[in-house]
Simulated assay, not measured.
Amino acid sequence: MLATLDSVLLTDEAEELGKMISESEIAFQYRQAKSKLKNDREAQRLIGEFIKLKDLYEEVQRFGRYHPDFLSITTRVREAKRDMDMHQTVAEYRQAEREMEDLLNEVSKLIAGEVSPMIKVPTGNPFFDKQGCGGGCGSGGSCGCS
Rank of each mutant, 00 (worst) to 15 (best):
E49L: 13
A27M: 11
E13G: 04
P122V: 11
A14E: 14
G124Q: 02
T89N: 08
L17K: 12
K120T: 03
K38W: 11
S35H: 11
E23T: 14
A14G: 05
G141K: 11
I21N: 01
G134W: 00
R78A: 12
L17I: 13
T11N: 04
A43V: 11
L110I: 09
T75V: 04
M84V: 05
L104A: 05
D83Q: 14
G124H: 00
L2V: 15
P126V: 06
Q61T: 10
D6L: 15
K38E: 15
V90Q: 04
R62N: 09
K120I: 07
Y66N: 12
R62K: 09
V107P: 02
D55G: 13
F70E: 00
G144M: 12
L110Y: 10
E15N: 12
G134E: 06
E97W: 06
C143V: 15
G48N: 01
S142D: 10
E114N: 13
L2E: 15
G124P: 01
I21L: 00
E16Q: 15
G18P: 00
A3Y: 08
C133H: 04
P68L: 02
Y30H: 07
C143E: 14
D102G: 00
S108K: 03
A14S: 13
N125K: 03
I119A: 04
L10Y: 07
K34G: 02
A27D: 06
K52G: 01
K19V: 13
H87P: 00
L9S: 13
G144V: 10
K36P: 02
S142A: 02
A80L: 09
M100W: 12
E16S: 10
A27R: 07
A91L: 03
H87A: 07
E13W: 10
R76Y: 03
V77F: 04
A112L: 09
G135C: 05
T4P: 03
